[in-house]
């Protein structure tokens, strides 16, 4: 299926959205490399859900609000976006950096969230290991590191239309603006995750070279009642194990509909 594209004006900025499918609303928040377009993961989930895939403010086709300088504010803006779409709460799936945004949103505005799925979420300082420091390497090298399989990476690159370097650079600039220091985490978030009151699932990719397992484990332990699962592949699960993640998400969100 082809998703439809539209934009929503929130707090003076246009947010670009891809949407498709039918069913309960599921908002997918992308990684710091940018919106991954309409991948197999989106396609799969669109068979059961009404998928909303916004480009986060400052990423890809969405405006960059000059005042937006931290991830907590970014999450607040996504909350306003979500409210503009539908005043009823919906489910969120956050991928990597998008997992951090979704977690902030769920912690601060639990009333907007019915169920929460976080895949290899950033946003918390790992107890062991480190979130890979993308700012020490070229943007393309960081994108490559998100893959366990070089073949999958090359396949993903091949699907790119337009100036990939420019796109990655623009997206990384926004990440720089909001998450440079502390490097890709919010020291308060671990404590504020007590505010997440809805059923949550934390997923980690077993060959993730960007976010260490201890990040996912901390999320699991900090969110009351959170479940934990693993899928194969690297950080870019939507390219390397889309069906494995889609199965988990469908089962988990399906419980909420039963």
């Amino acid at each position: 299926m082809s998703p439809r594209s539209f934009s929503v004006r929130v707090a003076g900025s246009e947010i670009d959205v891809l949407s498709g499918g039918a069913g309960p609303r599921l908002t997918i928040l992308h990684r710091d490399t940018g919106r991954c377009g309409w991948t197999r993961l989106h396609e799969r989930l669109a068979t059961h859900f009404n998928i909303l895939a916004p480009s986060l403010p400052g990423y890809d086709a969405s405006d960059r609000p000059d005042w937006l300088r931290n991830v907590t504010d970014l999450a607040a803006l996504i909350g306003l976006f979500d409210d503009a779409i539908d005043s009823e709460p919906g489910a969120f799936l956050g991928l990597g950096f998008g997992g951090w945004v979704a977690a902030e949103l769920a912690a601060h505005s639990p009333g907007r969230v019915t169920r929460l799925v976080l895949h290899s979420p950033m946003g918390i300082k790992p107890m062991t290991g480190e979130i890979f420091d993308q700012f020490l390497v070229e943007a393309e090298d960081y994108a490559r590191k998100g893959f366990a399989s070089e073949l999958a990476y090359e396949r993903e690159c091949a699907t790119e239309v337009g100036n990939r370097s420019l796109r990655l650079d623009r997206n990384r600039e926004m990440t720089t603006r909001i998450a440079w220091k502390p490097a890709m985490f919010n020291p308060s978030l671990k404590h504020l995750l007590r505010g997440v009151s809805k059923p949550s699932l934390v997923v980690w990719s077993t060959d993730d070279k960007i976010v260490p397992k201890s990040c996912a484990e901390t999320y699991r332990d900090a969110i009351v009642g959170a479940r934990y699962a693993e899928v194969p592949g690297g950080h870019m699960v939507e390219y390397e194990a889309p069906d494995a993640l889609a199965d988990l998400v469908e089962d988990f969100l399906g419980e909420g509909q039963a």
Binding site: V137, E138, A139, D169, R172, E173, T176, R177
Partner: peptide, 14 residues
């Protein structure tokens, strides 16, 4: 110099 060190993202325009 490494491009991302000489001019990190955001330091100047692309």
């Amino acid at each position: 110099g490494r491009p991302s060190w000489v001019a990190p993202t955001g330091y100047s325009s692309f």
